[in-house]
Every structure is written in structure tokens, then in C-alpha cells.
């Protein structure tokens, strides 16, 4: 249909998924901000400022998560079938925390609601901490593997009664979970410093939090890098046989000097730069370095996971059940049709950026909150 062969389309769709996943990492500033709500806001007004700043964006983060799942469903349905039905409890946990998030923005300030605003703020904290941690741990299992067996008729058997929750016993998965939570808090601080028009008090605390949370990211980042060098990864041969390869993910980083190692290093440098500018100057523009930095880092993370003949969802239970972009993808026809439809994506992105500019045209100030001027008051 488009002149691409099957493998090229599989690679294109892995790159698309990597980009969407990386954009979700950027947008996780909403979840990060929700945990900062509990730790940096001291007065009712400060809380309402943060909630209103995040309340304008949370749906975009949620939509990206759905898009990430949707793209996986369409492009690599065997992964979707395996992970969502097999690792059932992890995904249910994640989804439940996102249900809590949705109702919290809706009902926090509704008059006469059953639960008080403190309960909804607590729900937002659960989504920002537990929800994001579980997503990080789930991404970790894409490196360390899940306990599944796939039959010839695509029936999934999960080899552990915890149905995915056993992933929380693997240190690498925990490290990815903590990394995602603390990175989201860094991004959340940078975003809020940029989006709130107030100076002093809250914003100073947020500048401090950006730096402290970056320090908290470091040990987990170092551990992950160390494990990428030392851990055994899952590759596959020309005829699709899954093989174990020591240091596979680090080799992938080196094998893709620009989008692998290059994006990772550039991304990390940009994040550090954004935080340092925010912490040690009066600039509010840190998110413009930190945000793209998070996207570059995320793209590198996903690319080394699926490209260069790597199994992106290995099975610890039955090695040959491991999923690769070649054995888990949709047919040539489906991928071609999807690629045609995806040509409309730039228009959607243009619309999103237009709406974003409208929402950000005025910074949120305490006066807006006190006068309830904003028509979308949360």
C-alpha cells in the first residue's frame, strides 16, 4: 500500500510508540504536581492554585496514556493481549488510581459532595505516587520479563498467581518505578514554577523541590544504567529464536549512537540544565529544557527496548514465548492502513498546541482563584 515492507512498518510503529511513551513521561508532570500538592502547598489558596494549574492539563496526560495503550493494541496486539490479560492486577491497580484522579478534579470543590476536598487531594496523591510507580514498574518488566506462556492459538497462561504484582519483587522494576515518580516530581516543579504567576512562598519551595527531587532520581538512574550494562537481555536470531545476551540493553545504546546513547545523554543534560536554571536563577523557563530532555530520555529508553533485534516483552516463564516487534505485530495490511491514518496526527498535534497556547495565555494568579474568575475552576 505504501511501499514499506512488514519489518519497516513494525519499526516505524515501535518508533511511534516510543514517542508516545516519551510524551507521556513528559506529561507525567501532572502526577508529579499532584504529589507536590501534598508536600509543598501550605495554605488552602496554594493548594487551589496547584490544582487549577494541573486541572487544565490532566486530561492530556490521561489521553496520552490511552493513546499509548491504543497504539500498542493496534500495532502489537499480541503484547496487549498478553500484558493486559496476564498481568491483570497491575493494570487494574493503575487504572483504579486514574479513576480516583478523574473524580478528584471533578468533585474536589463541588458544593455538598459526599467527601471533603482533603479526601480528593489524597486521591490525587495516590494517583501521583502509587499509580505512577506501578506504571514505572510495569515498564521495568519490559526489560526484566513477565511470567507468561503463549500457546499456538494465542491463549495466555500466567505463571504466577500474583498476576503481575510479582514484578514488585524485582529491584530493577522498583528502580524504574521510583525513577518515574521522582522524575515526574522534577517535571511537576518545573511546570508549576512556569505556570503560576506568584513569586515567593510556594514558588520558592517548588524551585527547591525541583533540585531535591533531581538528587533523588540519581541513585535510581545509576542503578538502572549499571543494570543495563550487567544484566542479561533478550535478543532474537534471524529465524525468530529468542536468545539470552549479556549486556544487551547497553549494547543497544551503543548500537544506536544518535537515538540511543545520544538522546539519552542529551536528554539527561537538558533535564539537569532545566533544574539548575530553575533552582539557582529566577528564571521560570526551566521546563523548556527539562521537558524536551524528558522526551529524549524516554525515546532512548523505548528504542533500546524494541529495536536492534531485541525482545521488548520477554518471558521469564517460557523464553520462546517472548514478544518481539516481529512476532507480536499486526499484519502488513493493518500496519499499512494505520500508517496512512497516522498521517492525520500532525493536525491533531496542531490542535493540541493551539488549545495549550490558549490555556497558557495567562498565568494563574491568586487573584483569579479568589475572584473565581476562571470559568474552569477546579
Amino acid at each position: 500500500m505504501l511501499g514499506f515492507d512488514h519489518l519497516q512498518l513494525q519499526q516505524i510503529w515501535w518508533i511511534v510508540i516510543s514517542l508516545v511513551g516519551a510524551l507521556f513521561i513528559l506529561m507525567s508532570f501532572v502526577q508529579g504536581g499532584q504529589t507536590l500538592l501534598a508536600t509543598t502547598a501550605r495554605t488552602e489558596l496554594e493548594k487551589t492554585l496547584i490544582v487549577n494549574s494541573l486541572g487544565r492539563k490532566w486530561e492530556l496526560t490521561y489521553t496520552l496514556l490511552v493513546l499509548f495503550g491504543g497504539a500498542f493494541f493496534a500495532a502489537f496486539p499480541r503484547f496487549y493481549a498478553t500484558s493486559f490479560s496476564g498481568a491483570y492486577w497491575v493494570w487494574m491497580l493503575i487504572l483504579m488510581t486514574f479513576v480516583l484522579q478523574a473524580i478528584s478534579y471533578e468533585f474536589r470543590k463541588k458544593p455538598g459532595n459526599l467527601l471533603g476536598s482533603r479526601t480528593y487531594e489524597w486521591f490525587l496523591f495516590i494517583n501521583g505516587s502509587l499509580g505512577l510507580f506501578a506504571i514505572g514498574a510495569a515498564v521495568g518488566t519490559l526489560f526484566t520479563g513477565g511470567n507468561f506462556h503463549i500457546s499456538e492459538t494465542n491463549l495466555i497462561t500466567w505463571g504466577n498467581p500474583a498476576r503481575g504484582l510479582e514484578a514488585l519483587l524485582v529491584p530493577f522494576n522498583l528502580a524504574v518505578g521510583f525513577l518515574v515518580v521522582f522524575l515526574a516530581r522534577v517535571l511537576g516543579s518545573l511546570y508549576l514554577v512556569n505556570n503560576l504567576s506568584e513569586e515567593g512562598g510556594l514558588v520558592d519551595r517548588l524551585r527547591n523541590a525541583a533540585f531535591n527531587n533531581l538528587l533523588a532520581v540519581l541513585p535510581f538512574l545509576l542503578f538502572i544504567l549499571y543494570r543495563w550494562i550487567t544484566m542479561t537481555g533478550y535478543g532474537y536470531t534471524e529465524n525468530g529464536e529468542i536468545i539470552l545476551e549479556k549486556g544487551k540493553y547497553f549494547q543497544n545504546l551503543l548500537a544506536m549512537p544518535v537515538p540511543g546513547l545520544g538522546f539519552l545523554l542529551a536528554g539527561l543534560v537538558l533535564i539537569v540544565l532545566g533544574v539548575i536554571v530553575t533552582r539557582f536563577t529566577r528564571s521560570t523557563k526551566g521546563i523548556w529544557a527539562g521537558g524536551p530532555g524528558a522526551v529524549l530520555t524516554g525515546v532512548a529508553l523505548f528504542l533500546i527496548l524494541g529495536l536492534n533485534k531485541t525482545a521488548f516483552y520477554p518471558s521469564r516463564f517460557d523464553l520462546q514465548s517472548s514478544l518481539t516487534i516481529e512476532n507480536a505485530s499486526s499484519s502488513l495490511y493493518t500496519l499499512s492502513a494505520m500508517t496512512l491514518v497516522a498521517l492525520a496526527v500532525p493536525f491533531i498535534l496542531a490542535y493540541v498546541s493551539y488549545v495549550w497556547r490558549l490555556m497558557n495565555s495567562e498565568k494563574i494568579s491568586a487573584r483569579d482563584i479568589e475572584n473565581k474568575k476562571s470559568h474552569d475552576f477546579y
Binding site: T39, I126, L130, N208, N213
Partner: peptide, 30 residues
Amino acid sequence: MALVWLIIWFALLILSLKGAEYLLKKIDEL
């Protein structure tokens, strides 16, 4: 018995989330 385990599980979950909130507050205020 399952109900008891569920209650224990929830209690532990809430306790660890409260602990996490406390630790994060400490980190932010350092």
C-alpha cells in the same frame, strides 16, 4: 479469611502511602 487479608492489605497500603507522603515532604523541604 480473604476479607481479613484484604483489610490488612489495605491498611498496609495506606500506611506505606502515608509514609511515602512524609518522606517526600522531607525531601522537598531539605
